[in-house]
Amino acid sequence: MSATGTKPALRPFLPQDTATVAQIFRDAIGELTEDDYDDAQRAAWMASADDEESFAKRLAGQTTLLALRDSEPVGFISLKGNDHIDMLYVRPEVAGEGIGTFLATAIETLARGRKAKTLSVDASDTALPFFEKLGFKPQLRQSIALEGEWLANTKMAKTLEASAGRERP
């Protein structure tokens, strides 16, 4: 991998990325969320990538972008519709190096371009401080059932201001 601070490249998700992206997903959950979720909860969460065909369909059905360093995927983000971040995960070894912010900024720019008024995310307890730093505000606590386990998260939203210079009717 490149040194910290090297700006990553960005490209769309391709079907052949599925195994790599699924591994990023599992590694991020397994290593980065252990302070907030127990082993059974993390295992249930990671299991949602076990059916790689279904996982690939989910990613392909959304706008999914990959961050690359030295041509290798180090993180990904998916936008459901024009205004909901469905997934954002980075390799544990690059956590804290700005990859997540790079991806979130790219998706926010895309959402603005698609005329979204707000951008929402269901943030894990681990990701909550990250999204708060990006200007997302907590809306409500939720519990979701996965593989017989309950996981808490927080619905968050960010108001997207109109682009500068845009004329209003």
Rank of each mutant, 00 (worst) to 15 (best):
M156S: 01
S120K: 07
L88R: 01
Q142C: 07
F102M: 11
K158G: 05
E167S: 15
A157G: 13
E108G: 09
E31V: 09
R42H: 03
F55M: 06
A111H: 06
S54F: 14
E147T: 10
L134K: 09
G135H: 08
A60K: 10
D39M: 13
K57S: 12
R11N: 04
A47K: 12
T159S: 14
P129T: 07
P15R: 12
A22T: 01
A104M: 06
F25E: 06
T4R: 06
K7C: 07
T109A: 15
T63C: 08
L103D: 01
V121S: 05
T18N: 02
S2G: 08
A123I: 09
R166C: 13
E132A: 11
P8R: 00
I99V: 15
S2T: 04
T6G: 10
M87I: 11
L32F: 11
A104C: 12
T154V: 12
E147D: 14
R114C: 13
R166V: 15
A127C: 09
E161G: 15
K80E: 15
K7T: 10
L14I: 06
A22K: 04
T101F: 04
M1Y: 05
A152I: 09
R112D: 03
H84K: 15
A145T: 13
P169E: 10
L10C: 13
A145G: 05
R168C: 08
T118P: 02
K57P: 07
L146M: 13
S143P: 08
K117L: 14
